Computed example of a mutant assay.
Amino acid sequence: MTLEANLAVGTVAKRADVAVSALHFYEKKGLIRSWRNEGNQRRYKRDVLRRIAVIKAAQKMGITLEEIKVTLSSLPDNRTPTKADWETLSRQWQQQLDEKIAYMQRVRDYVNGCIGCGCLSMDRCPIYNPEDKLADVDSGAVLLDHPKIND
C-alpha cells in the first residue's frame, strides 16, 4: 500500500467521522499534516486515519490536544503510531490520567467544605489559613492545586 497523499479532506472527514473543520483545526495545532495538490487542494496520506483515531481515543480518555501533540511528536519522524507505539503512548497517558484522577479526588473531597482557601468560612474551614500564610504560596484556590499542602 502506498502512502501517497491522495485522500481529499471530505473523504478523510467522512471516514474518520469528524467535521472538516476538525481536520483543519488538528492541522493548525500540528497534530496532522496535509499536502497540496496541483489545484492547491488539501490531500492526506491514508495513515492520517489511524492518527486521527489515536487523537480521538486519547481525547475520550481526557488527554488534552497539547498533551497528544507532545506525545505524538516524540515518535520518530512524527510518524503515525503503530500498535506497539500505542502501547507506549497509552502507558505515558496512564500516568497523566492517574494525576488527573488524584486531582479530581482532592476536588471531590473539598467540594462541600472548602474552596481551597480564599476562605469564605473561617469558622468551618477544616484547614484554616491563619494570618493568610497561603498568600506566599499562590493566590486563589491554592489548596486544590498544591497536593503537598494537603499531605
Rank of each mutant, 00 (worst) to 15 (best):
R46A: 10
Q96N: 14
V20G: 00
D47H: 14
L89K: 02
K133D: 11
G30A: 03
V9N: 05
I68A: 06
A58Y: 05
L49T: 06
S74F: 02
W93G: 01
C119A: 09
N78E: 15
K29W: 00
K133N: 14
D136E: 07
R124S: 12
A8V: 06
L120V: 13
A84Q: 12
L75P: 10
A19Y: 08
G30I: 00
K45Y: 01
E27S: 13
E4T: 10
G140A: 06
V12E: 02
R33L: 02
A58I: 09
N112C: 09
Q94E: 14
T82N: 04
N37V: 05
R42V: 00
Q105G: 02
W86F: 10
R51Q: 08
Q105V: 12
P126Q: 04
L3H: 05
V48C: 12
G30D: 01
W35S: 03
H146F: 12
K28C: 03
D109N: 11
L144Y: 08
I149H: 00
R50Y: 07
S21A: 11
D98Y: 04
I68Y: 01
D151K: 15
A57F: 15
L72M: 03
L31K: 01
R43N: 00
L3F: 09
C114M: 06
L23Q: 04
R91K: 11
Y26A: 00
L65H: 05
L23C: 11
R106T: 14
L7F: 08
R91S: 13
K69C: 06
K69F: 14
G39I: 07
V142F: 04
E67G: 02
A57L: 10
I115R: 05
Q105M: 09
Y110P: 00
T82Y: 02
V107W: 05
N6K: 14
R33K: 13
L144A: 07
L23K: 02
M1P: 09
S34L: 03
L23N: 07
M1E: 11
L97C: 01
I63M: 07
R15F: 06
K45A: 10
G113A: 08
C125K: 04
N112H: 14
R108K: 15
T71S: 10
S74K: 15
G62L: 01
C117N: 12
T88V: 11
I115V: 12
D145A: 14
L65T: 05
I32Q: 01
T64M: 12
P147A: 04
V70W: 06
T64I: 13
V54A: 12
H24F: 10
R50D: 10
Q92L: 15
Q59P: 06
T64L: 12
I55S: 03
V111I: 10
A19L: 13
V54H: 07
P76I: 06
Y26M: 04
V70S: 15
I55Y: 04
L144G: 13
I55K: 04
M122L: 09
V12Q: 05
N40F: 03
A13T: 03
T88I: 08
V9M: 13
K28E: 13
E38F: 08
E99V: 08
Q105H: 13
K133M: 13
E99M: 06
A13C: 09
N37C: 11
A102Q: 08
L72Y: 01
